[in-house]
């Protein structure tokens, strides 16, 4: 038996080298079956798709504030008298028979629209006033009443000065959550691309519904190894249904969510019941129909022990984010 002196680096390396490979290191699987398995395997998913998803999220974040606001199809309600503002170039008035040319240039449309369309009968009593360029033309009661038609043209995009819903200035609370599955390009268990669905609750006073449903696409890069920071770009979008009536609310968010992945830091706990919990800050920018808003919150992720018969199984990552939505001046 040869003795090695591990006191020196060279002696220790020689000792380890002499230990060689452990027992059972000879592979049982043949090279030909590995080749066959490699040939059967579908090609790895293209990195283009996650890149496209990231690009879409970033694009949405950038273009969001510039996107045209939604215009209601119905007219303004009495409660919202200024929801639609008509401007003179956007409206034309045609009167048959033709009016004096001076009328066409006289009043701006806003005041014209609010002027009486008909001459009150009492004004017809007494002597007729002299013709004045600044008054309505003299109407003959026997003559057929002129037909007044208004043609309202849709405002051109640069003239859209009023959104359908004014940007909310209140701070709202949001709660979002869901389950992230592990699949795709990353094999690392705690991270990977995932899908989340969740419930969004917003505070009163905002233009968005109080309660909505959201869907999120989570793209988290594969960290190089354990004990690294894992995080990524997160995008959210979806259809919200909520008070006062069910309606489509196209909103999207984009932002970075970071989750420290270091076991020794206090951001990860193992609860006595078996739940494994990690927390981290969540910051995201939101661009919706109520203007740009900043979401700041606390993300909590957990893997739960599923108490079923047989060996315990661990749930996928369940995440919830609680925080505030703050308005950002556009």
């Amino acid at each position: 038996m040869t003795r090695f002196d591990p006191a020196t680096d060279a002696g220790l390396d020689a000792l380890l080298g002499a230990a060689g490979l452990p027992a059972g290191a000879r592979p049982r699987t043949s090279a030909s079956s590995i080749r066959a398995r490699a040939a059967r395997r579908p090609p790895p998913p293209s990195p283009v798709l996650p890149a496209l998803a990231l690009f879409a999220v970033v694009l949405a974040a950038l273009v969001g504030p510039l996107a045209p606001r939604m215009i209601p199809t119905s007219g303004p309600s009495p409660a919202t008298p200024t929801a639609v503002q008509l401007r003179a170039p956007a409206a034309t008035v045609a009167i048959d028979p033709p009016l004096p040319a001076t009328l066409a240039t006289a009043p701006p449309l806003a005041s014209f629209a609010s002027a009486p369309a008909r001459v009150p009968p009492e004004s017809l009593a007494g002597p007729l006033p002299a013709a004045d360029e600044r008054t309505l033309p003299v109407l003959d009661p026997a003559a057929p009443a002129p037909a007044l038609t208004a043609e309202i043209a849709a405002p051109s995009p640069p003239e859209r000065s009023a959104p359908s819903a004014p940007p909310s200035t209140r701070v709202a609370m949001f709660v979002a959550g869901g389950v992230a599955t592990d699949f795709g390009v990353s094999k690392g268990p705690p991270v990977g691309p995932g899908l989340r669905g969740g419930l969004r609750v917003r505070g009163p006073g905002t233009a968005s519904p109080l309660v909505g449903l959201t869907g999120e696409v989570v793209v988290l890069p594969d960290p190089l190894g354990p004990d690294r920071f894992s995080g990524g770009l997160e995008g959210a979008g979806g259809v919200s249904l909520g008070a006062p009536a069910a309606r489509l609310d196209l909103a999207w968010t984009a932002g970075l969510r970071g989750m420290p992945d270091v076991p020794s830091t206090p951001q990860r706990w193992v609860l006595p019941g078996g739940a494994f919990v990690a927390t981290g800050p969540a910051v995201a920018a939101s661009f919706g129909r109520d203007g740009p808003r900043l979401r700041v919150g606390l993300a909590v992720q957990a893997r739960l022990r599923l108490r079923a018969d047989g060996p315990p199984t661990i749930s996928p990552w369940v995440s919830a984010t609680v925080g505030l939505e703050l308005p950002v001046a556009p």
Partner: peptide
């Protein structure tokens, strides 16, 4: 690690059992 932490409620470092030495290593190193 995740499964162990969830199962036991404790964070353990690696608690591996050592691999078996090969017959050649036993012959050389005893």
């Amino acid at each position: 690690k995740v499964e162990r932490e969830a199962r036991r409620g404790l964070v353990h470092l690696a608690d591996l059992r050592g691999a078996d030495p090969s017959p050649e290593a036993r012959a050389i190193l005893g």
